[in-house]
Simulated scan of single mutants.
Amino acid sequence: MRRSFALRLMAPLRAILLAIAFPLAFAISPRLGPTRRAVTPIVKATTSYGNLNNGDLNRDSCTSTLWSGGNVLWTCRDTQLLTNGVPGFTLVANTASWSTIPSATQPAVLTLNSPEPFGTFFYLMESDECPTSGECSDGTRWVGWPNTGPAVVYNFDGGVNAYGFMQRQHLSGLTVLNSPSTTLYHVLQTTVDTSVMPSVSVDVSQFWSADQIGYGSACTVVQGSYAYLYGATPSGQLAVARSTLTEFLGALDSKNTYEYYVNGEWTTTAPANNAAGIALENTSDVQGTIYYSNKWESFVWIGGDGFPDANFYISTAPAAEGPWTAGQLFYSGAVGNGSLPAYSAVAHPALTDGTGDYIFITWTLTLDTNPTGSGPVYQQPLVRVDWE
């Protein structure tokens, strides 16, 4: 296993950092008693901020992570270079950018800045995934498509330690050819600097095997002393695991820190992906976002209903494992004229002030305006939703 500089610090320094950090890390989290009344979110207003500005990049399905110092890290799926508005044929399975936090009161287009040249992956293909592009000689393709941003588990002296979970999908067109395992990536920036991207390396290849839930690949939430990690079940719902942040710098690569929610209880035994009692009622594995709302003292899921619409639903729960309310439709966005008109309905708590009074949402719509056959043009509208 490859270790970064921060994880190779000498033992005495490790002890000092832990002594300073963990009284704060284990501050008492909000009371999430099961008798709390269900939250019923009500939309007060919606405001368009236009489309995300990716410059000369054509980018699919971007998600965001609050980094440090008011900076936001964006991770996106398939990316192409635009020339006079037309996408090129070279395709990069995932890329990353920086942005600032937008104003909550003055709508303006949000620009995503990419300090690295086009062609640079964020999560690299592994040695058995037809590197470096993922394109195989038989016409199939390995993809690294992030559903959510990396989980930030620790901030130290201006630096950030984070982890990303990526399913290893082998595709023919859009048909999945394998039962995906899930790799754990280490994302580190010892000093936050938006002129470069964080360092990213494979921490544990196939951390979750193909017959396990890909915990962390669907949604992640760091709240209190836990990282809550969600993955898709074969039934199209979500399952959840949690890891205590007791490893050095909150590392997520030791399964000794993990518990799994099965049959209404937390257990240290990882279930198979077809085990009974792991699917959370009223959840969906369609791409979405889970975060903690201080306004409602609840966990919140926001996501869509898949192709071809841009419908946004919201569900809440008093605890990470539930019980989750049935999803309520609260917003419907524009769709494109491409073969996949709209998808990737996600929320962006990283763009807010943390009060929970409002949230930003984006989705991907496709425009079939490309005469060269190199794929659709992607647009990602950004909308602020204010709650009553």
Rank of each mutant, 00 (worst) to 15 (best):
T268Q: 14
Q380M: 12
P12I: 04
L329W: 09
T191E: 10
L73Y: 08
V200F: 05
A11F: 10
T369M: 09
G214W: 01
R37N: 10
M125Q: 15
A15S: 12
S284D: 08
A27D: 06
G159P: 03
V286S: 03
I20D: 04
L184Y: 01
P318A: 06
C76A: 14
Q223V: 02
G277S: 10
Y123Q: 03
G144A: 15
A108L: 07
A15R: 14
C130I: 11
E116M: 13
Q167M: 12
V204K: 13
R3W: 05
N273V: 08
N51P: 03
W266C: 07
E135S: 14
S374P: 02
S205N: 12
N256C: 02
Q380D: 00
M197V: 03
E126V: 06
Y258P: 04
D128V: 07
V202T: 15
A310H: 01
G134I: 01
G134T: 04
Q189T: 05
T47I: 13
S243V: 05
R8G: 08
G375E: 08
L57H: 05
C62Y: 01
Y185S: 04
V286F: 04
T352V: 05
D386K: 10
E297D: 13
Y313N: 11
D60N: 11
Y123T: 06
T120P: 07
G159H: 06
L18R: 15
S137I: 13
L57R: 15
L280F: 03
D157G: 10
I42F: 00
H186M: 11
P234Y: 02
G224P: 00
Y343G: 00
L112G: 03
I28N: 08
S137D: 14
E135D: 12
V300H: 03
T244G: 05
T47N: 01
G231P: 00
L382T: 04
H170E: 09
N155S: 13
A15E: 10
D305P: 00
A326L: 09
N53M: 01
I16F: 04
P41F: 00
G236A: 08
I28K: 12
S127Y: 11
